[in-house]
């Protein structure tokens, strides 16, 4: 089943086309990598799917339901999670409080004014933190955590919403090489185990080719190729946009 289907998605900023008639879909439990050179429209695509931007044309279906027009918070409630290029967490809270906020938000219990906030020591919170390997740091404020750990916390935050599709914008950016592989392995493991579809952008080709089931390539706002990692790697047009010349001899 298609978790996400994007049809004819277009967006321009002041006459400059950022995304032009893009079509693709993500199946349940699939890891789909979106790659492309700078300015190809990857982040714009993400913001359109996530609801931060409104498309000029085209449709976005989430589990066969049209979702354009819904604000990001509504999409989250439908099961569309997201992480950001620069890890976004709630800096004034501890790791476990971060996760608990996301969990209570899912349960629609964040409006309560007079009850006390008990989510942070809950079983589910602990389990989520354990899942991303952050259990030992549960009570440390996010403002003090290393960047790689923040990325993990953000991942746990996104998981707390029980998403069926996760959009991850450069999940390993800003991390040292060793950490990158580790985090991506974790993402892939959890996604496969819980049958979560993951759409991610990434510059680190090691990560892309090791973990993605499928790869789509954007250049100048258009989708120029899609297929298995091996197919994409062999695609002449993809080589051209990345390397800038016919690397036939390579």
């Amino acid at each position: 089943m298609n978790m996400l289907a994007v049809k004819g998605l277009s967006k321009s900023f002041g006459g400059v086309r950022a995304v032009e008639r893009v079509n693709f879909s993500v199946a349940a439990g699939e890891l789909l990598a979106m790659i492309g050179p700078n300015g190809a429209g990857k982040t714009t695509c993400f913001n359109l799917i996530n609801g931060q931007l409104r498309p000029d044309a085209g449709e976005i279906y989430f589990e066969d339901r049209k979702i354009q027009g819904l604000p990001p918070r509504e999409r989250c409630r439908l099961g569309l999670g997201r992480t950001f290029q620069v890890a976004a967490t709630f800096g004034s809270m501890t790791a476990s409080e971060n996760v608990a906020v996301a969990r209570l938000s899912r349960e629609r219990k964040l409006g309560s004014l007079f009850t006390s906030f008990r989510g942070s020591s809950g079983k589910e919170t602990r389990a989520l933190l354990a899942q991303v390997g952050m259990e030992s740091q549960a009570d440390r404020p996010c403002a003090e955590l290393a960047y790689g750990d923040l990325k993990r916390i953000e991942f746990a935050l996104a998981l707390a919403a029980r998403p069926r599709l996760l959009l991850m914008d450069e999940p390993t950016a800003g991390m040292a090489s060793a950490e990158r592989g580790e985090l991506m392995r974790l993402v892939a493991d959890i996604a496969r185990r819980e049958n979560i579809a993951v759409l991610f952008t990434e510059h680190d080709m090691d990560v892309v080719f090791r973990h993605a089931d499928r790869v789509i390539v954007l250049a100048d706002g258009e989708l120029i190729a899609q297929g298995t990692p091996a197919e994409v790697r062999a695609d002449a047009q993809v080589r051209r946009v990345y390397l800038g010349e016919e690397a036939a001899h390579a």
């Binding site: 996530n50 931060q52 604000p71 990001p72 918070r73 989250c76 409630r77 999670g81 997201r82 950001f84 976004a88 967490t89 709630f90 800096g91 004034s92 809270m93 409080e97 608990a100 906020v101 996301a102 209570l104 938000s105 899912r106 219990k109 964040l110 409006g111 309560s112 004014l113 007079f114 009850t115 006390s116 906030f117 989510g119 953000e154 935050l157 996104a158 707390a160 919403a161």
Partner: peptide, 27 residues
């Protein structure tokens, strides 16, 4: 008490990172 209630946490979440809060379902 409200500062430490679920609502207070939502409020701080909105302050700390509006984007993250919105993406986590907080209005």
């Amino acid at each position: 008490r409200m500062i430490y209630s679920p609502f207070g946490h939502a409020l701080r979440a909105a302050r700390d990172s509006p984007l993250r809060a919105e993406a986590s379902g907080i209005d």
